[in-house]
Every structure is written in C-alpha cells, then in structure tokens.
Amino acid sequence: MYTTRVSGRVDAPCAVVYRALVSAEAIARWRVPDGMTCEVHEFEAREGGGFRVSLTCEAPDAVGKSAARTDTYHGRFARLVPDREVVEVLEFETDDPALGGTMTLTRTLTDDGTGGTDVVVLHEGVPDAVPAAGIETGTRAALEKLARFVESDIFSPSPTDQGHGRARDRRP
C-alpha cells in the first residue's frame, strides 16, 4: 500500500469548494474521469454517513475493478469540517485481494488569501495493484473538473458565493 499527495488551486472560496465535495449531484458531475460515467447509489454527507458510487468506462474493452467495465466503491464520511476538510474511508467492491482493503481520502481546503482555495488531496492506503501514476493523473484531472464545475453557472450554491476560476497544478 502507498500514499499519494496532489495539490492545486481553485479560484473559488473554500465554502463553494466544500459544498461541491459534499453534494451527490456535484460529485456525479466533477469526480468522474473523462471517458467514464458516474452513478451515485448512496450519498449521506454527514460524519458516519455512507456513500456508494460506480464509475463505468465507456470503452467496451475496458477492465474494471468490480465488473467488466465498472469500478464501484463504498465507504463512509469519517470527518467533515465545513469549508475546511472532507475525510472519506472507502474501498473497492472487488473479489480481487490485490485491490482489497480500505483507503483514506482526505481533501483539505485552505483560503489562499485572494479569494481562492488551495486544495490538498491525500490518498492513503492505496493498494499496490492500483498504479500511482493513474491515481495522481486522475486526481489532477478531478481538480481541473472541480474548478470548471464550481465556476460554472450550473453550480450556484448560494447568491453570496462569487468565486470563479481554474485549478492550477501544484506538485509537491
């Protein structure tokens, strides 16, 4: 098992970014990799609340961790600090012991002093069978999608939230 850390910047306030991290509708839009679809089966954003999500590859020859083209994972919210941190404990639904075990996904949000948010994404306990490069590439892409999502007119959490912008890669 290993750990990855990816960080970036989103030109939106922490409150807006946080709401995109704890909304099932938002997750289904920005946390899905390109070339995949997302189905949120369960999502109860509270400490101890559960979630279950499936990501399905559009390519007919793709190999999934849970089914032919699908990765399904489930877990719980271990810690929620409004506008600051989201900690999820999750695991793949798989019969493959090399992909088993729980992982911890921590997203930490920090006000950058200019109205934007520095986001640090830490994956801990990732099975060795999951390529680190894939996790890191996917996380950077997710940060970009998160930024596009929160800056769009599609995601308007409240009339007082005015932040807009893009994620910028910050490699450790």
Rank of each mutant, 00 (worst) to 15 (best):
R84I: 09
F43W: 15
R5T: 15
V119F: 04
P60F: 05
M1T: 14
L146I: 07
R5G: 01
V126T: 15
E144V: 13
A26S: 15
H123R: 10
S54E: 06
V120I: 10
P127E: 01
Y73T: 11
T72N: 01
Y18M: 07
A12D: 06
T72M: 00
S54P: 07
S158L: 02
P157V: 11
T117D: 01
E88M: 15
D95H: 11
P157N: 09
G125L: 06
G8R: 00
V120L: 11
W30H: 02
P33F: 06
R76Y: 13
V89R: 07
F92I: 12
F51H: 14
V86T: 13
Q162F: 09
A45F: 12
V126R: 00
D34R: 10
R166I: 05
A15Q: 13
C38P: 03
G35S: 11
R79W: 02
L143N: 01
A142V: 00
R84M: 12
Q162W: 05
G35A: 10
R140I: 04
T104A: 03
G101K: 10
Y73R: 08
R9A: 00
G134C: 11
P33Y: 04
F149L: 06
L109C: 07
G101D: 08
L80Q: 09
H164L: 05
E39Y: 02
T102G: 08
I154W: 08
T139Q: 01
L55V: 14
L99W: 11
T137F: 09
P172H: 09
V130E: 08
T108V: 14
G100E: 05
